[in-house]
Amino acid sequence: MGTVTTYLATIDGPDRAALERVYAMAQEMVPEAEEGTSYAMAALIYRGKGLIAAVQAKKFLSIYPYSGAVIAANLEAIPGFETTTGSIHFSAVKQLPDDALRRIVTARRAEIDAKAR
């Protein structure tokens, strides 16, 4: 894929708007994050680590906070959303609530900061 901007240019319609929302909110919360690639996905990179990626799959959209612990710690904030150990699935119609997305980005940033010390 490439950078976030390059990746988003390959997506159309409501899915693109939903993915842009994720990246915009994360960028607003962590302005020092930069576009890059992590685990072959376009992602926001913070302190050299993947902060968050949001991608389109065949049947759903996914958020990858690069941390199973972050997902597990925030399951109560995302009832009704399918998760794996590394991702949270959503759609353009059923997007993650703003507060849940903020909690996930905040937790991932804190995790990266703690490991950097």
Rank of each mutant, 00 (worst) to 15 (best):
residue 1 M to W: 05
residue 33 A to T: 07
residue 18 A to K: 03
residue 13 G to Q: 12
residue 69 A to V: 11
residue 34 E to I: 08
residue 36 G to T: 03
residue 74 N to K: 08
residue 46 Y to R: 06
residue 89 H to Q: 15
residue 81 F to A: 04
residue 5 T to H: 04
residue 109 R to V: 00
residue 50 G to Q: 05
residue 56 Q to K: 15
residue 74 N to D: 07
residue 56 Q to L: 11
residue 34 E to W: 00
residue 108 R to N: 04
residue 74 N to S: 12
residue 89 H to P: 01
residue 98 D to S: 05
residue 81 F to G: 05
residue 87 S to V: 09
residue 57 A to T: 13
residue 84 T to Q: 14
residue 117 R to L: 08
residue 2 G to H: 08
residue 117 R to Y: 02
residue 112 I to N: 00
residue 28 E to M: 02
residue 108 R to V: 01
residue 76 E to I: 01
residue 96 L to W: 03
residue 33 A to L: 14
residue 85 T to Y: 01
residue 55 V to H: 10
residue 76 E to G: 06
residue 102 R to Q: 12
residue 65 P to D: 09
residue 2 G to E: 13
residue 42 A to C: 12
residue 5 T to W: 00
residue 112 I to S: 01
residue 116 A to I: 01
residue 84 T to L: 09
residue 111 E to Q: 14
residue 103 R to G: 02
residue 92 A to S: 15
residue 2 G to D: 10
residue 112 I to K: 06
residue 113 D to A: 00
residue 51 L to P: 03
residue 10 T to Q: 05
residue 31 P to D: 06
residue 81 F to E: 13
residue 14 P to M: 13
residue 42 A to K: 00
residue 31 P to C: 06
residue 88 I to A: 10
residue 36 G to A: 07
residue 113 D to L: 05
residue 51 L to S: 00
residue 12 D to L: 14
residue 20 E to T: 10
residue 110 A to V: 03
residue 112 I to R: 03
residue 114 A to L: 08
residue 94 K to G: 13
residue 48 G to A: 04
residue 68 G to E: 11
residue 93 V to R: 15
residue 109 R to M: 08
residue 48 G to V: 07
residue 44 L to Q: 02
residue 67 S to K: 09
residue 110 A to Q: 09
residue 91 S to F: 06
residue 89 H to D: 12
residue 83 T to R: 05
residue 30 V to F: 00
residue 11 I to Q: 07
residue 107 A to N: 11
residue 69 A to F: 06
residue 41 M to V: 10
residue 21 R to A: 13
residue 92 A to L: 11
residue 102 R to S: 04
residue 51 L to K: 03
residue 9 A to W: 02
residue 108 R to K: 11
residue 86 G to E: 05
residue 101 L to C: 05
residue 43 A to V: 11
